[in-house]
Amino acid sequence: MDRERLIRYLSLLVIGVAAVLPFVLEANLYLLNVLILMLIFIIFSSSWNLLAYSGQGSLGHAAFFGIGGYASTLIAVQSGLSPYVTIFLGGAIAAGIGVLIGLTCVRLKEWFLAMVTFGFAIIVQAITVSFLASLTGGWDGIASPRLVSSQVPGYILIEYYSILAITAGVILLIYLIFKSKIGMAFLAIRENEIEARVSGVDPVRYKLLAFAISAGLAGVAGALEIHYFGYITPEIYGIDISFWPIIYTILGGLGTIAGPVVGTVVLTILWDGLKVFGLTYERYIIIGAILILSVIFLPKGLVSLPDKIAGWWKRRQKKSPDAGT
C-alpha cells in the first residue's frame, strides 16, 4: 500500500515537472522539440508495451503509427476538421486495421507473430505508395495541417501541453486497464493460454482487444507526430520506427507502466546529450553498448534498478558484520 502511494506521488511529481519544464528551459524551441518527440514516443512505446503485456510482441508497430498519421492527415485535409479531432479518428482507424491484423495473428506465437507484424508494416507501406498513391502522394508525401497553426502566438507551448495532456491521459488509461479485469485477462493469457481458457477467459477476444487498443494508441502517437511535423511521407513505416518502442520499453522495463516512460526519457537524454560532444558513430557505439549491458545486468529494465540496489545494499549489510569478525 505504501509503495502504491509512493508511486502516485512520484507520478504526480513527474507530471508537475513536465508542466513547469518549459519555463525552466525558457521555452527553448530545441528542447521543447526534443520533449514533444519524447512524449510522442512515450505514447508509442506504451502502446507497444500494452500489446506485449498480453503476450504479443509486435515487430511492426510502425504500421499503426503510420496508419494513424495518414488517416488523420487525410481526414483533416479532406474534411477540414481540426487535428485535435482527427488524431482520435486516425487512432480509431488504426485500431480497426489493428483488429484485422490481429485476426491473422491470434494463432501465432513469439517469432511467428513478430515476423508477421513486421511483414504487415512492409505491406502497408507498399500499399500506401502504390494503390493509394493518388491519395497519399506516394513517396512524395503530403502536407499535413499543424496541430496548432504557427500563426497563433506561443503555438509550440500549446502543442506541448496538448501532447503532454494526451500522454498523461494515455498512461492513465493504460494504468486503469492494467488494474482492471481486462489487464488480469491479458496477464493470464500471457502466462498460460490454456489455463486462461479453462478459467473462462476467451483468449481470442482479449488478444484482439489488446491489438485494437494498442494499434489505436500507436495511431494517435503517429497522428500527433505528423501534425507536429506538418508533413507525412512513407518513411513513417520505416523499420527503425518499429524498433524504437521495443528499445525504449525493454530498456525501461517490459510490462510495467513506468517502463516505457523511463526508457524513453533516459535514452532521449543520452541520445541528444551525447550529440553535444560532437560524437557521430561513437554515439551509436556507446548506445549499443549500453543496451547490451543493460539487458545483461538489468533484464527487467531500469525500473528494477532501485530494487536491485536495495537488494545489493541488504546483502552488503548482512555480509559486513561477518567481514568484521
Binding site: L12, A19, V20, F23, L157, I158, Y161
Partner: peptide, 23 residues
C-alpha cells in the same frame, strides 16, 4: 482526485505560458 489535480496543473501552466511572452 488525481486527474483533477493534473488538469488544474496543466491549465495553470498554460495560463502562465500565456502571460510570459518571449521577448
Amino acid at each position: 482526485r488525481y486527474a483533477v489535480l493534473f488538469i488544474a496543473c496543466v491549465i495553470g501552466a498554460i495560463l502562465f505560458a500565456g502571460c510570459t511572452q518571449q521577448t
